[in-house]
Structure formats: C-alpha cells, structure tokens
Amino acid sequence: MVEVSVTKKYGERTVLDVDKLRFERGKVYAVMGSNGSGKSTFAGILAGVLKGDGEIIYDGKKPETGYMPQKSFAFDMSLTANMLLGQPLRGRKAIRDKARRLLADFGLGEMSKKNAKKLSGGETQKLALARLMMEEHELLILDEPTAAMDVNAVEKAEKFLKDYFVRSRPAIVIVTHSPAQARRLADEVIFLDEGRVEEKGSVAEAFGNPRSDKLKKFLSVNG
C-alpha cells in the first residue's frame, strides 16, 4: 500500500535513513529500537507531520491515515468534546453513542464531562487512542500508544486495537519498546538502530532467531 524511502537530518546528523520499507493493509508492524534510534521520526514522517528527504509512494490514492504522536495531547474541553472533534455529524445520536461507548470501554465513562486537561498521563493516552478510534483508517500509526498506561489499561487497549484491526483491516504501525507487546500484536518487526533498519522480518523470525547482535542484546535486556 505504501513504500517509504526517506532520510532525515538534524544539522549534520542523520537520524533516519530507510529504504523501500513497505507497509500493507491487513498487517500490524512493530517498530522497535532503543531511545533515539529514529522510531518517532519515522512515525512522524510516515504520518506526514514531519518532513524528510526522499519519497513516500502510495499504491493508488493516499490512504486515510490516523496518527497518535508519542506525546498525547488533551484539548481544553470535555472528554466528550474531545471525542467529537472533527466529526461533522457530531449532532447525530449514532456518533454520540459511539463516543460514549468508546469512553466507557476505555474506562473513562464516568469522567466524560470533565475537562480533559485534568486527566493523568495514562488517562490522556487512553483518551487519545479512543479519540482516534472514532474514525476508521487504512493506515494507523501509533507511537508508543500504551507507554503511560498501567497493565490493565494496556490489556484493554490491545484488545480494542485487535477488534479495530479485525473490523477495518488497516495497516497498523505501532512503535513499542516492549517485545511482549510486539509478540501480542504484530506480524512484522522493524528494528531500528541509529536511524537504519538493523533487522526486519516476521515476529517469529526476528524474535525467535535474531540475526543482528544489537537485536539480540535488545531482546535480552527488554525480555
């Protein structure tokens, strides 16, 4: 569906350099790597909020894309209003019901009338994920979407992601630090190191029989 060949430089330093990385609908990709390896840079460029040098080629038209940045943001309004942002039919009962259901699913139902700025980091992340699920996407890019959540919330969020995935069969690109999460959610792993693809392959291959020493080390430390 989409093929990415980009480099990104800050000053003299190249923080991302990937060539012909392909993403197809109906697959979940885990982007992994240590801090500063270029994961967020890659996610931002793929989402179109960051400019790089190179090209992003789509088969056919540009897919409907949803993107959740690493830093979740709550808009200064109620949780419900946050959910309805950008919904042209926000007056419709079906839309409002969907928002209510999603908030309840993420355990935020009781707080729906509260100002979203009052939420904790983990709650803000839940809101951001729930808000994104108001729409169906062809390409969904999530940058460490559960990093601030507790284990219960992570479990729930992953369940919703799976349901969402089954429902609309998008390509999901999820940046994660957790090999366990990658195992639970992803089909493919892209392991970045200093902006380059150090290893790439199916979850079974990459985790079961890693070729790269860096990935081996990463896995031994992160479990």
Partner: peptide
C-alpha cells in the same frame, strides 16, 4: 501533530 493525526 495530534490534531493533524486526527485528520483535522
């Protein structure tokens, strides 16, 4: 970034 990611 958040707003753009929501397609606004």
């Amino acid at each position: 970034d958040t707003a753009a990611g929501m397609g606004l």
